[in-house]
């Protein structure tokens, strides 16, 4: 077995991703059930239930359509964030998986990047499930909606990287509640998932526009509703900016914790 014992630089994160995928695939059925049933319940309860009380459309479309596209984004955020926090923390601290990887030719950078891309992939999986449901319910305009998939992956990577930054400094699982309560939940409620941002006070609007979920929705919702995409560069730029900041920061902070 005297051959090269390590992969070329560009692909070193792949075994880390594959390890996580293999674990996910073992419990693929219950995982997918959660990915499908939960958004379905939200769509039925809020979309039909709440939507039936609405006398007019929401931002020009039926509320169910509006909600489905918002949830496709929120789900990528939530799934990637939780993977990058609770699951990554378990692997980093409780199971020693990361240090185990780092005693092979993989480096800390490979491990962190693999984890972030995996978190993004989990975000993609959950968005894909919602897109499927929405398509079956007739809530998607046309085939342009397939662009949602690569975008959901990028959005997932963005939130995954932010989550790993938090994980790197977390002392225990309870620490994640700060991040969820102070950032994830406000974004979920105030970035345009359930209602347009325009109606909110100016200050909240500015706050929402500084955070990535607003821009994820700005990209994904028009694609699902068959509307014109505007401000694509701005939206991609903000999400890309968060990625460009969070990934090196995550590598650095995890390094400070594990490479003592």
């Amino acid at each position: 077995m005297r051959r090269a014992l390590f992969l070329p630089a560009l692909w070193r994160w792949v075994p880390v991703w594959q390890r996580n995928f293999a674990v996910w695939y073992k419990l693929f059925k219950p995982a997918m059930l959660g990915n499908i049933v939960e958004p379905l319940l939200y769509l039925l309860a809020l979309g039909y239930g709440l939507g039936s009380f609405m006398s007019s459309d929401m931002a020009g479309v039926p509320y169910l359509h509006y909600l489905a596209s918002g949830m496709a984004c929120a789900s990528a955020m939530n799934t990637a964030s939780f993977e990058g926090m609770y699951s990554a923390y378990t692997r980093m601290i409780m199971q020693g998986t990361w240090v185990g990887m780092m005693t092979t030719p993989l480096s800390l950078r490979d491990v962190v990047i693999g984890e972030i891309i995996w978190a993004g992939s989990k975000g993609l999986i959950s968005t894909a499930a919602i897109l499927l449901i929405a398509t079956l319910m007739g809530l998607v305009a046309d085939a342009r909606a397939l662009w949602v998939l690569p975008l959901a992956w990028i959005v997932g990577i963005c939130f995954g990287a932010m989550a790993v930054v938090i994980t790197a400094v977390a002392k225990n699982y309870d620490f994640f509640l700060y991040y969820v309560t102070l950032l994830i939940t406000p974004m979920m409620l105030l970035s345009g998932v359930f209602f347009p941002v325009d109606g909110m006070p100016q200050l909240l609007q500015i706050g929402a526009k500084c955070l990535p979920l607003y821009h994820a929705i700005g990209l994904i919702r028009p694609l699902m509703l068959g509307q014109h995409n505007s401000d694509v560069i701005l939206h991609l730029g903000v999400i890309g900016g968060y990625i460009a900041l969070a990934v090196p920061l995550a590598i650095r902070l995890v390094g400070r914790r594990l490479l003592t």
Partner: peptide, 17 residues
């Protein structure tokens, strides 16, 4: 990295998957 490719490690604490 090159060195680690030729080293095997049995750590103090089990970190089997």
């Amino acid at each position: 990295r090159e060195a680690r490719a030729r080293i095997g490690v049995v750590p103090q604490l089990d970190n089997l998957d």
